[in-house]
Amino acid sequence: MAQIQQSDIRNILLRKLSPQDFALLAPHLEPISTQLREDMVTANRPVAECYFPESGITSVVASHDGREIEIGLIGREGMVGAVPVLLGNDRTPHTSFTQMAGESLGIATPALLDAVGRSESLRLLLLRYVQTHVTQVGQTAFAQGALGLESRLARWLLMCHDRVDGDEILLTHEFLSTMLGVQRAGVTLALQNLEGAGRIRSRRKRIQILDRERLHALTNGAYGVPEAEYERLIGKA
C-alpha cells in the first residue's frame, strides 16, 4: 500500500509535525473507520493502539455504577490514547469511545513510543497536545461547577462544531443527557432555550449551529481556554 502523504492528512497534530517527524510515524499509520459507540480506549486495559482522528469525534468519559459523564472530547485536533501513553503509562481509568463515526489513523503503541524515543521534537509536540487536553478536562470541571445547563450545552455544541465539517451535529437528546449527566428533560429545556434565542435549530436527531458568536457569549469563559492553549502551544487548528 502506498505510504500516506502528510499533505493529504486532515489530523492537525500530524499536519503540524516536521517532515522528519512525520516520516518516523508514517510507515506505521493505518487508516481505519471508527464505529459509533466503539471503544477506542477501554478503561483499565492496556492501550494497544493510539489513534489520530481524521474525522469524527471521540468522547472521554468517567463512569461509576452505570452512570457516565463526558469529561473530554477528541477530534481531528488530537490523539486518542495520548494522555496515558505519552505520560509513560499503559492504561487509564477513563474510557474513550466513538461519539461520531469517522476516519482515523491508528498506530500500534510500541511503534508510537519508538518514534517518540527517537525524536525530542515529536515527543514535545505530542506532550503539548496532552497539556491542551488536560486543560480541556479542567474547563469541563469549571463548566460543571459554575455554569447552568444552557451554557454547558452551548460549550459542548461549540466543541463538537469545531470538530465536524459543516454546521450540523448528529445526536439524540438521550445521548446528550448521558454526556452532560442530566435528565433528558433538562436537555430538552436547554435546547428549547438556545433555539428560541436563534442560536441553534434543534431537530429530533440533529442540531444545526446558527450563531456561534452568541453561543460563545453564553459560555462565560468555559469555552475558548483550551482552544487558545492549543493555538499557543501547537498552532492554529
Binding site: 447552568g148 445547563l149 435528565q183 433538562g186 429545556l189 436547554a190 432555550n193
Partner: peptide, 15 residues
C-alpha cells in the same frame, strides 16, 4: 423521579 433529580442537580438559567 425525573422532577426530583432536576430539582436536586440541575440549574437552568431559563428556569
Amino acid at each position: 423521579g425525573v422532577a426530583r433529580d432536576l430539582i436536586a442537580r440541575t440549574r437552568l438559567d431559563s428556569i
